[in-house]
Amino acid sequence: MSAHLVGGIEGGASNTHVVIMDSQGKIIGSARGPGTNQFQLGIEACSKRIASLTDLAKKDAGIPKETRLEALGLGLSGCETESSKKELHDRLTSDYPQLAEQIVIGSDTDGSVAATSNKGGVVCIAGTGSNTLLINPDGSRAQCGGWGHLLGDEGAAFGISHNAIKYCFDDIDDFQKAPYSIDQVWGLVKDHFKVTNQPEVLPHFYNTFDKAFIASLCKKLTELAKNGDSLAKEIFKQAGTDLAKAISAVHKKASKELIERDGGLHVLCVGSVWLSWDLLKPGFIGFIEENTPVEKLSLMKLKVDCGVGAAYMAADKLGLHIDRDYSNNYDVFFRYCRRCR
Rank of each mutant, 00 (worst) to 15 (best):
P34L: 04
G35M: 06
G35Y: 09
G35C: 07
T36C: 15
N37F: 05
Q38F: 03
Q40C: 05
L41V: 03
G42M: 02
E44T: 13
A45H: 13
A45N: 14
A45F: 11
A45Q: 14
A45E: 13
C46E: 07
S47Q: 12
S47N: 12
K48C: 04
K48N: 11
R49G: 06
R49S: 13
I50T: 02
I50S: 06
I50E: 09
I50K: 02
I50V: 11
A51Y: 09
T54A: 10
T54N: 11
D55H: 13
D55F: 08
D55A: 15
D55M: 05
D55L: 00
L56N: 08
A57G: 13
K58S: 08
K59M: 05
K59Y: 07
K59I: 12
D60H: 11
D60I: 00
A61P: 09
G62T: 07
G62A: 12
I63S: 14
P64L: 15
K65T: 15
K65N: 13
E66K: 15
E66P: 04
E66G: 04
E66I: 15
T67K: 15
T67R: 15
R68A: 13
R68I: 04
E70Y: 07
A71Q: 10
A71T: 03
A71H: 06
A71W: 08
L74Q: 03
G75L: 08
G75V: 05
G75M: 09
L76Q: 10
S77F: 06
S77H: 08
G78M: 02
G78E: 01
C79P: 05
E80M: 00
S83G: 01
S83K: 14
S84P: 02
S84K: 02
S84H: 04
S84E: 11
K85E: 05
K86P: 01
K86G: 00
K86W: 01
K86N: 14
K86T: 13
E87W: 00
E87I: 03
H89I: 07
H89F: 10
H89T: 09
D90Q: 15
D90N: 14
L92E: 10
L92K: 06
S94W: 09
S94Y: 13
S94N: 14
D95Q: 14
D95N: 09
P97S: 03
P97I: 03
P97M: 06
Q98W: 09
L99C: 10
L99T: 00
E101K: 14
Q102Y: 00
Q102V: 00
I103Q: 00
I103K: 01
V104A: 03
I105E: 06
I105K: 10
S107F: 03
D108P: 07
D110I: 01
D110T: 06
S112Q: 07
V113H: 13
V113R: 12
A114Q: 13
A114C: 12
A115L: 11
